[in-house]
């Protein structure tokens, strides 16, 4: 019985440790990219593998300056992202020679919902890694 409890506790610990590691990664490696901006309250981090995607839809208010940060563990390779308007029109693609691949600064002339799509590149390696991916949003007036 004692062994059972120990094993159960160990499994529980493994799960929470994985999430804790992702939180720690975000705090250590991603938050500084929002310096000068007021960070959005929502915590959006996930453990992804090659080929995974992530999506986020959010309203952006007219008159605010925004910074979108897509922060990922280097083991996942060149994680890319695109921004679409409410009608599905592509407004930004991080693969198209943008100056900074981890964040983009923008403002909207009218309040509108935009969709952010994040892609983790596929991998052909025999051993695949998973890594933390975080999407952060900051604003300033």
């Amino acid at each position: 019985m004692k062994h059972t409890l120990i094993l159960l506790l160990a499994f529980g610990l493994l799960a929470t440790t994985a999430q804790a590691q992702c939180r720690a990664f975000t705090k250590k490696n991603c938050m500084t990219a929002l310096d000068g901006y007021i960070q959005n309250d929502n915590y959006n981090s996930a453990i992804l593998i090659p080929g995974d995607e992530a999506e986020l839809m959010l309203t952006f208010l007219a008159g605010q300056d925004y910074r979108l940060v897509v922060c990922s563990h280097p083991v996942l390779g060149d994680v890319t992202y695109e921004i679409f308007d409410g009608r599905g029109k592509n407004l930004f693609d991080s693969r198209k020679g943008e100056p900074n691949e981890t964040h983009v600064d923008f403002k909207v002339e009218t309040t509108q919902q935009l969709q952010v799509k994040v892609q983790v590149p596929p991998s052909e390696t025999a051993i695949m890694h998973e890594g933390c991916v975080t999407v952060l949003m900051g604003s300033k007036s």
Binding site: I49, A54, T59, V75
Partner: peptide, 18 residues
């Protein structure tokens, strides 16, 4: 913030924010 994964199939993670 990384490790070897046992997952083979991909997924789309949906984040929500306001």
């Amino acid at each position: 913030g990384m490790s070897v994964t046992k997952r083979q199939s991909t997924l789309t993670k949906i984040f929500h924010a306001a």
